[in-house]
Amino acid sequence: MSTRSSQSRATSGPPTAWRRLPVHAVRVVLALFFAFPVVFMLVSSFKPDQQIFGDLSGPRAFLPVGDLSLTNYTAVFERVPALRFLLNSLAISATTVVLGIVVNSLAAFALSRMRWPGRKLLLTLIIATLIVPFETFALPLVWWVNELPWLELNGFGLTLTEGWLDTYRVQVLPFVAHGFSIFLFHQYFQSIPKELDEAALIDGAGWFGIYRRIVMPLSGPAIATVAILTFLPAWNSYLWPLMVVQQEELRPVMVGIQYFFQLNPSWGEIMAYSSMITVPVLALFLAFQRSFINSIASSGVKG
């Protein structure tokens, strides 16, 4: 009996952990490779310019050694209204995410759960919009938003004004509806059993009640994924605010980085500013990475 067990152990090979060691080693190497730029940026944000260039020839460029201080971070707030830019981007991105989740999920619900003629054709057209780059219609979009009316509240009541330029709404509303977000919600909604809708309709619930009480509570991973994919372009937006916003108090963080290249560029300050605008994005992804992966995996189950 003992001979048979020893033979089975001999033929079974190394333990599973040892067999997976090369895979883990490759993953660690790839993680370090992609993390090097972020580590260099964070470490350099605490160094003066002379030390940044002096450390480029060796591994000290990635190590927090030498003359470290918070001088670059304090200089950022003295050189540009960084706090104002951060608050603007946070407000614009958060509003775009909230409105995007509501609008895109409602459109996806109508396309995936309700039956009406032409819905498949409409979904195809929505997906087709993804092949059109933003740069091709940026200039026509500027003309359109400049012609759109808006109701503003003043001391005499509501006043109809024309033009959205130099406002917060011009940085939010054109990017609320997005074809990929609708498609992602649609694919996830397809994986939810439609028998739940039938049971709710028999109980007297309406379509909006099914959307609010059944479908959306079961779509946490899809909501988290759409939130990340909506937040990233809103936070990283540069070309559009540069075209439609002239007032400094309305500009987002990405437009603010051009301030550091106007006179005497200080790379320590540039690294500090870049770190300030990168950390929120990393924190958001790390907080929702599990839901992001689950949504991407489940969205391809049923199409």
Rank of each mutant, 00 (worst) to 15 (best):
E135G: 05
P14S: 14
T278V: 13
V245C: 04
V145Q: 03
R19I: 01
L42M: 13
V176C: 01
D49W: 08
R4K: 14
S93P: 06
V279T: 14
D197S: 04
V23A: 08
Q247K: 12
S299C: 08
K120H: 15
R213T: 12
Q171R: 09
S93M: 05
L123G: 02
D197W: 08
T225V: 04
H24M: 09
G155V: 05
A287L: 15
M276L: 15
S266R: 13
E195L: 04
A200S: 07
R290I: 02
R4D: 12
D166F: 00
F261S: 05
R4F: 14
L68P: 10
S44T: 05
D49P: 07
F185K: 10
L32K: 06
R4I: 14
R79W: 02
F292Y: 09
F40I: 14
R60G: 12
R169V: 12
R84Q: 03
L286Y: 09
P81G: 05
A94H: 07
N146Q: 13
A82E: 06
T129L: 02
L184P: 01
F33E: 10
L284P: 10
M276N: 04
L232K: 15
S6N: 13
S57I: 07
L125Q: 00
V102W: 05
L229A: 02
Q247W: 00
W207S: 10
A75P: 01
A199P: 07
G100V: 06
A177N: 06
T71L: 01
G300N: 07
A31G: 08
S295W: 08
P15D: 07
S5T: 15
L139A: 09
I202R: 05
G179D: 03
V80L: 11
S8I: 14
T225P: 08
L130C: 05
A227V: 02
L229V: 04
W267M: 12
F180M: 06
F137T: 13
V97D: 11
A31C: 01
M114S: 02
S298Q: 10
S191Y: 03
F134Y: 15
P37R: 04
E249M: 01
E269C: 08
I210F: 06
F46K: 11
V26C: 11
F288H: 01
P22D: 04
A177K: 08
M114G: 00
S191W: 04
S2D: 15
G268T: 12
A31N: 00
L121C: 11
A75K: 12
I257C: 00
V98Y: 04
W267L: 10
K302L: 11
D67M: 13
G54F: 02
V23L: 07
N154D: 11
F183Y: 09
G13I: 03
A61N: 07
F189S: 09
E198W: 06
T11Y: 15
S8N: 14
S237F: 06
F189T: 02
F180I: 13
L173F: 11
V281L: 11
L141M: 14
G118F: 09
I131A: 03
L30G: 11
T11S: 13
F34T: 10
E195H: 02
I293M: 11
V102T: 15
R20A: 05
L30T: 04
G268R: 12
V23N: 00
L201Y: 05
Y273L: 07
V245K: 00
A91I: 15
S191N: 11
V26R: 13
